[in-house]
Design a protein around this nucleic acid. Structure first.
Lengths: 203, 203, 203, 203
DNA sequence: CATGAATGAGGGTTCATTCAT
DNA sequence: AATGAATGAACCCTCATTCAT
């Protein structure tokens, strides 16, 4: 008796169904993210996503209400992961180690998920989708600024808020340039420069 | 025989046709830029552009070979205007006055043409269109870096190239944030800070 | 659990889908052939074909990649049917019976599918489509010439290849005239004449 | 004083205008025939014809009421030239010399105007245009058959009408094949064969 | 007579979404 | 749960024709 026949006979428990659902969702989102990033959101059809994921068009609509809902899900998840990078122990304070670690993580994410970032950027600038994420993004930025301001205050930097603003802005600029020209932009140089100039390490 | 009666008989002169063409092109490009910026390139149909410009769909194709050609024309023109801001007397050297003027101009352009910049950004991240402008943009960036490197060298800054890179990156970051959040981002503060920290004015 | 209830739950099997596809393709091709033949390829819109077939425009593109692909499919099928008429037992040799049968069949096809032939001819002379079928047609003609040359050689005809060439050319001329003027052209007379003059029957 | 200035001052006589008109018509028709033959009637736009002829779109409509009218004019003229080939001294009788000359002319025309013939054929099979020429063509064919029948009768051929029919049909077939495959079809061989078998020369 | 800007109906095609099975 | 056939609105684009000049 094969595993296949077992599956057909044994009723699945609700938990098993839920697990299958989650795996499918994961598969669809990963596939869609890759394709959206490679080809652009508008240029990538539902058909292509379903094919690439090895499922039918109809099934996709079982998991996401629309193409846009799928996009939103992907983007939102990306945000949440990004937010996780900040203040990992959730104490609202950035230690020197956390600062270094944060920079490490940020550059690592940039380098590893280069393509995905392009999608995020592309999406940010789509007026229709933009409105939906605006708030989330604003909060993220302000939270980051606050953490950095505190950090600079702790390290006796003058005008700590401006310093935080510049630092945050610079990170945006780095991300932007690196995502645009991954092979040309000297990201390692920038990283060292930033650590030297903004980490204010005591060591 | 009056000139008037001649006009009624004679066809338009090539010059007259050229004037009409230029005016129409201008009208179409301006209209399209506004709509592309407001609604996004893909979400904005040729129909809508033609209607907004008060012309027929067909006429648009008398002036631009395709929707994409229209976009390219708009973007290219934007680039050219931008390039004009750098080194206005074309001597390849940035004086202190030119540096200040350049920053003034840059922030002014950002504030005045906020919408257009959003379009530029949006377009940069659309994989299909991106390839078409990549080179132009890269050259612009490198030209700017070179000018700034020279500037910093002249002013005795250590690691002038890195300084130029960081400065350029920071400007990108500022533009990015301001375009995303014009009402939230404290661009004036940033401007002052930048002039203080990067202009290395002797005065 | 009855088969009926299964049917209601289970999706269609691949075989069922394949059947649907074949039937639909058949319907579309038949409809298109009629319309192409009646109105000409360029003058007959996809809209008209879809309407006549009782399906949506979009569905047509589920079965054929383009209007041209649809045309090619129709023409190719016609060719294949025609090729079947030659040397039906595929031994590369034309017996006297087969020769008579071939002529019978050829004239029968001409009479029955008059419209379709007009399409074939029309298409042959459209420069844009012509290139796509040129080779197929050439092969068909040469295959026919070879069979006929062998036949005439067997029957002791002088210059058998020229005889075959003339015979083939004559058949083309007959087809051409009959397709152009089905009600005027005395095809039966020609048929008898041809059998008398070219079949070289021993009986 | 240049010729140009004379032209501007001196009023043209009606005859001169008429000559200019005729030359223009000639130019347009020749240009259009080339383009129609090369690219197909439907695929060749009025714009392209006007450009190739070095005139404006508007002017073309000064000479022909529509694109179709232009086509009809071209085709009709072609017919008239063809008709000229038969019975050049208009005595309704074909001498042996005229027969040979006719065959010579026919093959020469075929070889020289290969492209144009393809257009004629293409047009014959366009249902909308076909109706307009049908009658002309039928008359031409019947006139030819009559001449040939008389010729064969004069030369004591049995079943002269059938012989004429076969002969005419064969010529059609030759034209068809040669126009389709100018580089492959052994037209010279066919020509010799035809003269040998159908001219019934006494010499 | 001569121009080409301007029109607008219609062309082929795509694709998110629905639904019978 | 799962399929892909089917829809139809909207897309970009073409082009014969008109007309003010």
């Amino acid at each position: 008796m094969t595993e296949r026949s077992i599956k057909n006979i044994m009723p699945r428990s609700p938990e098993q169904f839920e697990i299958i659902r989650q795996e499918r969702k994961r598969l669809i989102m990963d596939t869609a993210l890759d394709l959206f990033a490679q080809e652009g959101y508008h240029s990538c059809s539902i058909n292509k996503i379903a094919s690439a994921a090895g499922i039918s068009k109809g099934l996709l609509y079982n998991y996401f209400d629309s193409k846009e809902a799928l996009l939103i899900a992907i983007i939102s998840e990306g945000f949440e992961e990004l937010i996780e990078q900040f203040d990992p122990n959730h104490d609202g304070v950035l230690s020197e180690d956390e600062m270094l670690n944060f920079l490490d993580q940020l550059f690592k994410i940039l380098e590893e998920n280069n393509q995905h970032w392009r999608l995020y950027y592309a999406v940010f600038f789509q007026p229709d989708v933009y409105e939906l994420i605006k708030e989330q993004f604003r909060e993220l930025f302000q939270q980051m600024i606050k953490l950095l301001t505190d950090y600079f205050t702790h390290h006796g930097v003058e005008e700590p808020e401006n310093e935080a603003l510049v630092f945050g802005t610079l990170l945006d600029g780095i991300a932007f340039n690196y995502v645009m020209y991954p092979e040309l932009y000297p990201i390692e140089t920038l990283k060292k420069y930033i650590i030297k100039k903004f980490a204010y390490l005591n060591k």
